[in-house]
Simulated scan of single mutants.
Amino acid sequence: MTSTPRAIVLLSGGLDSATCLAIAREQGFETYALSVAYGQRHVAELTASKRVAEALGASEHRLARVELGQFGGSALTDPGIAVPEDVEADGIPVTYVPARNTVMLSIAMAWAEVLGARDVFVGVNAVDYSGYPDCRPAFIEAFQTMANLATKAGIEGHGLRIHAPLMTLSKADIVRRGTALGVDYGLTVSCYQAADDGRACGRCDACRLRRAGFEAAGIPDPTPYQHRSA
């Protein structure tokens, strides 16, 4: 008899991570959803993560807390830095959160080792994304190498695999894939400055990419917006 393999899925509550959770489930994993409260100003996504984890049948959903916001340096954690609206930034935008994905993957790595899971899923993307350095294939590959040098499981030959199934997909392809897998995107929140009830601003980079993805996919956008003109 073989038990169902376990996987940790980093779940922000947004469109990409919800799709990633559905893909992990489709691939036959028993999924354990991990969300991280890192001091983000758009806390509505954490509420959304609970809805998504339940809807997609995660065996467990945990919320870890790490206060990256105490350092500031990002429009997502520092209320003194405005979230850019209606512009495509050149270079790395101010919404980049220093070390965010490194920290989140490290927490996922720790939980995976405790659970005896050898797989971690993360919804990073290097096609329709904001240009963050920790969303690139080179980063994922390097983190996997580090994880297998830094853990007891890795040293004993039970190496950790980091899955980034959305890495080379367009936002439209992600929407199509998730829709085919039964993801209810009306449960998700992607906006960088969403209202507490989850309504999106319709103007930030995350909203722009999300809306364009639904339009290109030819699938109705279920996102509730704060402004009718969004």
Rank of each mutant, 00 (worst) to 15 (best):
A112L: 00
T145M: 07
A89T: 15
Q144T: 14
L160H: 02
A108C: 03
I162Y: 04
P93R: 10
D134N: 04
Y129M: 06
N148S: 06
D90W: 07
V114R: 02
L115G: 05
A99H: 12
W111F: 09
V87T: 15
G123R: 05
H163F: 06
T151K: 02
V97I: 14
R118T: 15
F139A: 05
H163D: 01
C135Q: 03
E85C: 08
H158F: 06
E141S: 11
A138V: 14
G131F: 10
A99Y: 14
D128Q: 11
A89N: 08
G157T: 15
E85M: 10
H158I: 01
A110I: 11
A147D: 03
I92K: 08
D128T: 11
D119C: 00
I155L: 08
F143I: 11
D128G: 07
A117N: 04
T95C: 08
A126I: 03
F143Y: 14
P137C: 12
T95P: 03
F143K: 01
R136C: 11
A153I: 05
R136I: 13
D128V: 11
A110M: 04
Y132C: 07
F139D: 02
V120M: 00
A108V: 09
M104A: 10
S106V: 12
G91R: 08
H163G: 02
G91T: 12
A138N: 02
P133T: 08
V103H: 01
D134C: 03
I140C: 14
P133G: 03
P98H: 05
F121L: 00
E156F: 13
D134W: 05
V87Q: 13
S106N: 13
G159D: 04
D86H: 09
F139V: 12
V127W: 12
V120H: 01
F139W: 12
V122T: 14
W111L: 07
K152V: 14
F143G: 01
D134Y: 06
A99R: 06
D90L: 10
V127D: 03
L160F: 03
G116H: 07
R100L: 15
D134R: 04
A147F: 08
G157M: 06
Q144G: 07
R118M: 01
T95F: 09
C135Y: 04
R100A: 13
I155K: 04
F143C: 04
A89L: 09
V122W: 02
S106L: 11
F139I: 10
D90R: 13
G131Y: 10
D119Q: 02
R161S: 06
A150E: 00
H158Y: 08
S130Q: 05
D119P: 00
V87D: 02
E85G: 07
E88K: 14
L149S: 14
D119G: 01
V124Q: 13
A142F: 08
A138W: 08
D86E: 14
D128A: 10
V97C: 08
Y132F: 15
D134H: 05
A147P: 01
A112R: 01
F121S: 02
N125Y: 14
E113C: 11
N125G: 12
S106R: 03
V124R: 11
F139P: 01
K152W: 09
M109I: 09
E113F: 06
D134K: 03
P133E: 09
V124T: 15
D119K: 01
L149H: 12
G159A: 10
R100D: 11
R136A: 12
V114A: 07
S106T: 15
